[in-house]
Amino acid sequence: MGLDFSVIPPFYGTLALGVLWTIAITAASAVLSFFGGILLAVVALYGPLLVRLPFRFVAWLFMGTPLLLQLFLIYFGLAQIGVDLPAFVAGVIGLGFHYAVYNSELIQTAMVAVDKGQMEAARTLGLSRRQALMRVVVPQAVRDVLPPIGNNMIALLKDSALVSVIGVSELTLSAQLAIGRTYRPFEFYAAAAVLYYVINLGMEAVLRGFEKRNRLSR
């Protein structure tokens, strides 16, 4: 069986929809992982001990196990305790939380490295500890780790392919759908690979743009 790329055009619509869903799930998960990462970092550093310890444990668990396994846990685990989520939502939670843990590690390191004088200056102006954290310390820490957070988001795009296994009809599953009809795996996986590659390039360009804009404020 040779290669025949003329099987692809009839499935342009399917693949295009897959691309949109991939972008949607990546964007939603990236947003969740960004703000989740900030929240986790603040709690891990400043939360009460009773909250901090379980958080550290869960972070350790999520950094030491495969994302795919976590997706199964979230999808089937939540269903078991009676929370029946659409696959898309489960996928966003799984991807978002997984990368939130990684982002949180980056942000924590950066928060600790923010000069102590920054907190002091904010407090002497009359800001509360929380205000000082959210207005002064966190923005600086996040700004300092923007490039590695960007790298995490690019990794997230590629890991979004994993949510196909819990039935989110993103690009990978769209390709599988087309393969189910045509029995042409090589052509469609190759097509999916090209599309991922293009999205990847686009995302890198956007992130580099962000970083450039951020350069002055340091």
Partner: peptide, 22 residues
């Protein structure tokens, strides 16, 4: 660039399911 720019899962599928075609 190609291997870092696309999902590992797709690479795996391409090799395992698409391989026989080539």
């Amino acid at each position: 660039s190609l291997f870092r720019g696309t999902p590992a899962l797709i690479q795996l599928f391409l090799l395992y399911f698409g391989g026989p075609q080539i």
